[in-house]
Design a protein around this nucleic acid. Structure first.
Lengths: 230, 230, 230, 230
DNA sequence: GATGAATGAGAATTCATTCAT
DNA sequence: AATGAATGAATTCTCATTCAT
């Protein structure tokens, strides 16, 4: 019974956080608004989530987990490679359309990209945060940012998997680097989605259609007279 | 002499602003730090720039103006279309490498993208700011955000110009929408640059080389067996 | 218990505000001093009162409410008209002696009187703020100023009520305009009180005695040989 | 020549100061606006007037001097006492209508009335500033405030002179204190003028007519059945 | 366990005054 | 003599976090 109550509190806070972070972004969102929407007390939020940043992370992680399930389902399906790519990116597109602000915030604010911090991957694949200029991040900052990089890395990794499969099936031209190409494609799609609404205010289905075209042209090129590279 | 002194104060503030905004992003940057770096008084900043937002805008606009000169020079050069596209995107890439944080901030923080605001272009081409959810932006917010959209629009417009020229020369496949395609390509490049450093910490020349490859594949596709669409 | 504690914080702030506003006036009063006197934090003030202006208004309104109770009690008493006028103005006098600075501030600073703003009463009795010269007040300024005019209007209205009653009993000479006359009398008394202390530093009882005489002479004139007007 | 130039600068600054102080009040007026209107430099203002407060005082004193000339002319004229009183108060009324904000500011802001300071007149007639509560004014504050009290005292003194003359001619009832009565009358008129525009937006001539009536009733009373006091 | 009153460090902005030219 | 660029103390307001009940 108690557990249920706690749980429902936690859920209510998470829902409220989604609403408010998606409306205001991370920095402009205030705990005051979140607890008002959640109809709870400030102490409760701190009890369950520790601080504002961790509340945001918990929210993002939850959505990330669902997204990853969808991603792996596509990656492991048995359809042909081209369909897989399209399906995968459609999942990605729909997800970003539904979570535009949340993922923008994650990719730009929380990863410290716009604070001059950078993630470097060491030889063991571990992620470390370094400052490009100025003071090095504190341990706490590093730890916080690393979490978001791990999420992004997981998201791109499952797409890499598809590209590696495609490569092994000789689907790509000579010289294509599947890790780079897959990541570039995902980021490109993300950026287009982020600016899609902004640009024209069109709807989800339109956006998907648009993205499918874009992906098609990324696969097959936009130039009429195809030639061999170099 | 006087001119030089005045100028040097203004310039010093602008340089300090670049340093601090590039280290902290817009919101986390404080006037206190900027004046400390510029070794000046707070009043001086307000005399020259009016407020924090305008200081940021002035900084961005200055860089934008130089960028646009480079852009138009490429757009109006007489080389073949493919070289133009590559050159243009190399200019774009180098610019973003040098101004990563500033342009991230402009594209996400200042345009309100991560606060649920959106720009819609009306029939006359005028830019209006609308809220996707929640309260509409105030007049002052709108006016501020419109300025940044105008810069971005100018930046994409000169690339559109190249794509329209390419289309008229039958360079593209049937069905390519040059406005969408050019914008998508610019945004894709931007996103890859934004996450380039973050991902691996490689250097400018590497990034350019990487981007040229990426652009090539976007033009000619990554798939081995080219087929006609549909 | 909780209620008492809450209450005591709010009350302490209000008391501190009264002390500081009465010592410094509105503009020269600082939140820093108020919180120091109240021995509280800045956030507490803003939680309860929203901003400085609203803190002042709350303070004034509280005193106004008590004053109005006293006023209506006098206005509705059954004594003869002349006593009523004296009693009413004595209440007014004692109130102003106790709240000199607060009511000066309200009548001159907060109503914008010394910034060239003016209240005009439209045909429906609604109060609108207009600039006599220069820029019109902003909506926020107007709204703020209107509140104080409403208080003043309420204060003069109950005196008008007495004067209308007096007129209906034929107490006044032909040609007396009860609304003007009552308001003039109240304002005259206010001005004399405002400069009473300043002029001589005498005490409340002296002031009351002085005012009663003044009121007597305003009713019956100071000229020895009474004649009919014109 | 030089003198002429200086002088014209001084005059221009004073005119600008009148315009700005009358539009914004003392505190909201800024030197920046004044020098812009005067089309001069900030240093010039400080050279001639030393500081903002002294600029205000100089302006007020200049107007005061002219007013005093008009006052003494009336006081020393040979018409009957009643006309003198009316003429005197008409001069006062017209002056206040023309200088509403300036005199409000002087009477309320600059005399420190709304900062809890008070002027006491010692046995020798000298004016001293005392705090009613809180810290005593600094020497500089005292000196500054005393100047304004002297102006006000001079303004009421010439009216006292008329009242003393009237008393000596047996114009007033027994028991009238000419100093109090004259001062009360002047302050009453001032207060009515200050709130005249605010109340109804009527014009100068209306206001004069209204004031004459009010003065008449103050002399002869508003009560129909005149009786002897007590 | 849940609450929300209280806090105060920190941020943007203003403006009278100074002083080198 | 005249200027106006430079200053920084002072002010209002915000909001994440704490902790007593």
């Amino acid at each position: 019974m108690e557990g249920a109550v706690e749980n429902s509190k936690k859920t209510r806070i998470l829902q409220a956080a989604e609403e408010v972070f998606s409306t205001r972004g991370y920095i402009e969102a205030t705990l005051d608004e979140i607890i008002k929407v959640a109809d709870t007390g400030k102490g409760t939020v701190y009890k369950y989530f520790g601080n504002k940043e961790n509340l945001f992370y918990t929210l993002v992680e939850e959505k990330h987990t669902k997204l990853m399930q969808d991603f792996w389902q596509v990656a492991q399906s048995t359809t042909d490679v081209e369909s897989k790519i399209h399906t995968y990116l459609e999942v990605w597109t729909r997800f970003l359309m539904a979570n535009t602000v949340l993922w923008q915030v994650m990719m730009f604010e929380m990863t410290g990209g716009n604070r001059g911090f950078t993630a470097v991957v060491d030889e063991k694949g571990a992620i470390k945060i370094k400052a490009q200029w100025g003071a090095q991040p504190t341990k706490a900052q590093s730890a916080s940012m690393e979490r978001y990089y791990h999420l992004l890395k997981a998201e791109t990794s499952s797409f890499e998997y598809i590209f590696l499969e495609a490569q092994s099936k000789n689907f790509f031209k000579e010289g294509i680097h599947p890790v780079d190409a897959s990541r570039n494609l995902m980021f490109s799609v993300a950026m287009v989605v982020f600016h899609w609404r902004g640009a024209e205010g069109r709807e989800v289905e339109d956006c998907c259609k648009h993205l499918h075209e874009m992906v098609h042209y990324m696969l097959y090129g936009i130039v009429r007279d195809q030639k061999l590279k170099k």
